[in-house]
Design a protein around this nucleic acid. Structure first.
Length: 256
DNA sequence: ATGGCTCTCGCGGAGAGA
């Protein structure tokens, strides 16, 4: 079973690209972030035609998350309790025997901006949501907008203190992990440097100026079943006339 | 060099992203 996350940076602008990825990589369950659309225009029928059930939690212009699955999807929670004022960023559902949640965590803008404190508070609400622990069959995936360690940034430890790289943000990431969520790409790639996001500007992708900020976290049963985790960087590249998202998809391959 | 792209809204240019 293949379980994936992807910040698509606007689903309307990305639908054809996304359809190609679904056809080629054949994920079983996917969490999408940054839909930038309301639920009434979410292309559920197009996904159905591609073989996927879907569930969305969107809003006008910004944010928005969705879940696709080969199996039927039962919604558990749309919107993070205590975090709704930050927009549509949380969606939890049961599908394919997995307790699946996808998140689009706030950016924070700069450490001086008021949104930085709101970002920290949003993570506190997320940790509180999981205060009873990660489900054994749980997946928590998405764009976390935090670089967990210096190894996960092209800047290395010279990035320390910048937005995404602060002690407070890293403490929030630790608080999620401490609920019982394991970073399964890192578990499979000890001491390796790889990125999931690259700036559109200045040829950052080709200069290897990226960050690893997109994660697929798993509970104990998912960690045991995890055979591999891949950052699908080929899909950060332009495909013909189709523009890529600035994020690559990340997936896990699980034994059955 | 706080930009250097790309998206949305909406029809000009601004805000957000990370």
């Amino acid at each position: 079973m293949r379980v994936a996350t992807w910040n698509v940076n606007g689903l309307r602008a990305r639908m054809e690209f996304v359809a190609q990825w679904l056809a080629e990589q054949k994920p079983d369950i996917v969490g999408f972030q940054e839909l930038k659309m309301t639920d009434d225009i979410f292309p559920a029928a197009e996904f159905e035609a591609l073989g996927y059930h879907s569930l969305s939690h969107g809003q006008k212009s910004w944010n928005g998350v969705a879940i696709l699955s080969r199996e039927p999807i039962t919604e558990v929670q749309a919107g993070l309790p205590g975090g709704e004022e930050m927009g549509a960023r949380f969606l939890r559902a049961e599908t394919g025997g997995i307790d699946f949640t996808t998140v689009y965590c706030p950016n924070g803008k700069t450490v001086e901006h008021a949104d930085y404190e709101r970002k920290l508070a949003w993570f506190d609400a997320l940790a509180d949501y999981w205060r009873d622990g990660a489900p054994a069959n749980g997946v928590l995936c998405g764009d976390f907008n935090i670089v967990p360690t210096a190894l996960d940034s092209w800047r290395g430890d010279s990035g320390d203190g910048r937005i995404f790289h602060t002690v407070k943000e890293r403490a929030r990431m630790d608080s999620i992990i401490n609920c019982g969520w394991q970073d399964l790409w890192r578990a499979q790639h000890d001491n390796e440097q790889a990125f999931s996001w690259w700036d559109y500007r200045g040829g950052a992708f080709h200069r290897k100026h990226g960050l690893r900020i997109d994660f697929v976290l798993g509970g104990t049963e998912i960690a045991t079943r995890c055979r591999d985790s891949i950052i699908d960087r080929d899909f950060r590249k332009k495909r013909g006339e189709l523009t890529a998202s600035d994020h690559a998809p990340v997936f896990l391959d699980l034994s059955n």
